[in-house]
Simulated assay, not measured.
Amino acid sequence: MGVKEEIHTQIVGALAGAKFPLETPEALLSAFPDGAETTCKSGDFELKAGDAGKVLTASDFPFKSAQNVADVIVERAGL
């Protein structure tokens, strides 16, 4: 499994208990187990949930599923 797939899988797993839709960036961060400090790692690559705000825009919301969140973050993070 490559970095992109591994990070994607970790994001989906971290949001497994979230109640969708997530309407705001604050709701998204709150849905992660450790909030903004939730960290996904693959090899030397590390991505914190708080860093997602750098790649998301208001038009990305609402998110309807963990898969949707992971798709957007992984695509925009340039993995």
Rank of each mutant, 00 (worst) to 15 (best):
M1E: 14
G2H: 11
V3S: 14
K4E: 13
E5P: 06
E5M: 06
E5K: 14
E5R: 11
E5I: 03
E6Q: 15
E6L: 13
E6A: 01
E6N: 14
I7V: 06
Q10V: 06
I11R: 06
I11M: 04
I11W: 05
V12T: 08
V12L: 01
V12S: 01
G13I: 02
G13M: 08
A14D: 04
A14H: 08
A14E: 09
L15P: 05
L15W: 00
L15D: 00
A16P: 04
A16Y: 09
A18C: 02
F20E: 08
F20G: 05
P21T: 03
P21S: 04
L22E: 00
L22P: 00
E23T: 12
E23H: 13
E23S: 13
E23A: 14
T24H: 07
E26H: 07
A27M: 02
L29R: 10
L29T: 05
S30N: 14
A31N: 00
P33N: 10
P33G: 01
D34P: 05
D34W: 11
G35M: 07
G35F: 11
G35A: 07
G35N: 05
A36H: 08
A36F: 10
E37Y: 03
E37W: 11
T39G: 03
C40W: 07
S42Q: 07
G43Y: 03
D44I: 10
E46K: 13
E46M: 12
L47H: 10
L47R: 09
K48P: 05
K48F: 07
K48I: 08
A49L: 11
A49Q: 12
G50R: 09
G50H: 03
A52I: 02
G53L: 11
K54P: 06
L56E: 07
L56V: 08
T57S: 14
T57D: 13
A58K: 00
A58Y: 08
S59H: 05
D60G: 12
D60L: 07
F61N: 11
F61W: 03
P62C: 02
F63C: 07
K64E: 13
S65D: 02
S65P: 08
A66T: 05
A66H: 03
A66W: 03
A66L: 01
Q67W: 02
V69Q: 06
V69Y: 01
A70E: 03
V72M: 13
I73Q: 10
I73D: 01
V74A: 08
V74M: 09
E75F: 10
R76M: 13
G78L: 06
L79C: 08
L79S: 06
